[in-house]
Simulated assay, not measured.
Amino acid sequence: MTLPTYEEALAKAREGSPFSNSTEGECWMENNCEQCVHDRPARTGNPADGCPLVLVAYLDKTPAEWMRNEGFRLGDQYTCVMFRPEDDPGPDEPTPAPDPPGQLTLCPREPYERPGRMYVDIRPVEAGVR
């Protein structure tokens, strides 16, 4: 899963501001964006190369990659599916643990490994009654 461009993020964004006031926005961005590798350029003096999701949020739209958390705690309103801590040295996608040397396998791993991260949809689902 790669970070969308600004145009892609804007096209998928939901209408409406993600935060009700600047305090909520600053608290959330301090807990998330200010620790994320994708927004590092903005913090180092190059805001044009910062995270496109933040730019979309500044236009009073909620990025689709920000999933709403249940309950309310200041600074914890959303979970950004693109978040990656700055000290994460790995690639964009997780890699499987290698097989121990000399271990025999019954079947190949490749067809059963998922190609990327899998996220759970946390939106409420209405259940039908039978």
Rank of each mutant, 00 (worst) to 15 (best):
P47T: 06
P94A: 00
A64D: 06
L10P: 03
E7G: 07
F19L: 04
P63I: 00
C80N: 14
D60L: 02
R109F: 12
G102W: 02
L3M: 14
P63K: 02
R43H: 11
A11D: 08
F19P: 00
E65H: 03
C27E: 10
N21T: 09
A42Q: 03
P111S: 07
P85H: 13
W28I: 03
W28P: 01
S20L: 11
P63W: 01
D39F: 05
C33K: 00
E26D: 13
P100F: 07
A9Y: 04
Y78I: 03
G25S: 08
R109E: 11
D87S: 05
E8K: 12
P47A: 05
V37M: 12
A57T: 03
Y6K: 06
E86Q: 12
A57W: 00
T2Q: 12
R73T: 15
G102N: 06
P91L: 15
L53A: 00
T62G: 01
R68N: 09
C36G: 03
E15F: 09
R84K: 04
E24I: 08
E34S: 10
N32V: 10
L59S: 00
E126T: 08
I122P: 05
E70P: 10
E65C: 04
P47E: 12
Q35M: 14
M118G: 09
G90H: 14
E126N: 11
D39A: 05
D76C: 09
E26P: 04
R117H: 13
L53P: 02
T79P: 06
E15H: 08
P18H: 12
P47L: 08
E34R: 08
E113S: 08
M118I: 15
G71M: 06
S22V: 15
